[in-house]
């Protein structure tokens, strides 16, 4: 399995991950190598095997619907890149 520079650019866009144009070739090469390693999975038959998502056969626990967190807005916003009047600021989204 090999990826092209165009593939890398598309995947990077899906991940909202900035990759310098001059680096896409190198990423395409290393990712293709990793995909070759991964392709070893196809050497074994997994028909009728139940996929395993989690190591423990444990059901998702439920808890009473109670408020457990107090409002700590100022505390959390103290480490934000940009805030004003209790709101997180980002570039304008709607023109």
């Amino acid at each position: 399995m090999s990826l092209t520079s165009d593939d890398v650019a598309k995947i990077a866009h899906l991940a909202r991950l900035g990759i310098n144009t001059q680096d896409t070739e190198a990423y395409a090469k290393s990712l293709s190598g990793i995909l070759d390693l991964i392709a070893q999975m196809n050497t074994i038959n997994t028909d009728h095997i139940t996929p395993m998502a989690h190591p423990l056969d444990q059901i998702q626990r439920l808890r009473p619907d109670q408020v457990t967190e107090s409002n700590q807005r100022e505390h959390f916003q103290a480490i934000a890149p940009q805030v004003a009047e209790g709101l997180y600021l980002v570039p304008k989204v709607i023109e």
Binding site: G18, I79, A80
Partner: peptide
């Protein structure tokens, strides 16, 4: 780059903010 951690300088729009901060 929105609520905590590194944010790129002068993002032009939201996608640019995400993409460059992470990149």
């Amino acid at each position: 780059g929105v609520r905590f951690g590194y944010r790129c300088s002068n993002p032009v729009d939201l996608t640019d903010l995400y993409t460059r901060s992470r990149g």
